[in-house]
């Protein structure tokens, strides 16, 4: 059974309370259609379980398969430097159907980022390092495709719908 390495920490982007009983980590790729399908289901899970769960997202862009996946991951990490990671994360999935190299600045503007700073940050070494560190964490944790979910540190064998079902059963 594969386990999450390293554990969730302050380096992660997290939604939800630290006191939550269940921590879900998603490894995702913004251009992967299966991740796009999972996005609304993960939102439903968050709505349904509220304070009981917290969600962390780590980047796992398959650059060779998905031309814009790495750029999208970098854009989200650059947005994080202006405290708008989740706004960019959501905007990327909601606009996945039209992803291309010009989309990132457009979304940066839509979510109200300082554009000049965003343009600098997408080139910054520390932003790229964050994406690569996430990817390496996925590799070491046994990610075998996207999306991959970890529940309290253990790899969950299934998609977002399976995850929802499992949570319903385990909390009822």
């Amino acid at each position: 059974m594969s386990t999450l390495k390293p554990e969730v920490s302050s380096h992660d982007h997290i939604q939800g309370a630290a006191s939550a009983a269940i921590t879900i980590v998603e490894f995702g790729d913004y251009q992967c259609p299966y991740c796009g399908d999972a996005y609304p289901i993960v939102k439903e899970i968050q709505d349904a379980f509220g304070d009981q769960i917290r969600l962390a997202f780590r980047n796992f862009p398959l650059q060779e398969s998905h031309e814009f996946a790495y750029g999208a991951a970098v854009a989200a990490e650059a947005a994080a430097l202006q405290d708008k990671f989740w706004e960019m994360h959501d905007a990327l999935y909601e606009n996945q159907y039209r992803i291309n190299a010009d989309l990132f600045e457009e979304l940066a503007e839509t979510i109200g980022l300082d554009l000049e700073r965003f343009q600098q940050d997408v080139e910054a070494a520390n932003v790229k390092q964050k994406v690569e560190a996430d990817f390496e964490s996925g590799v070491r944790s046994g990610v075998n495709g996207t999306p991959s979910f970890y529940v309290n540190g253990t790899k969950f064998d299934g998609n977002a719908s399976d995850l929802y079902q499992m949570l319903k059963e385990s909390t009822s």
Binding site: D29, C32, P33, Y34, C35, L62, Q63, E64, S65, F135, E136, V139, N144, G145, T146
Partner: peptide
């Protein structure tokens, strides 16, 4: 299938 394809995954890992 693409996203869960084992060879596509290894392709991203060549530098490791």
């Amino acid at each position: 299938p693409v996203c869960s394809d084992q060879m596509a995954l290894y392709n991203e890992m060549l530098k490791y």
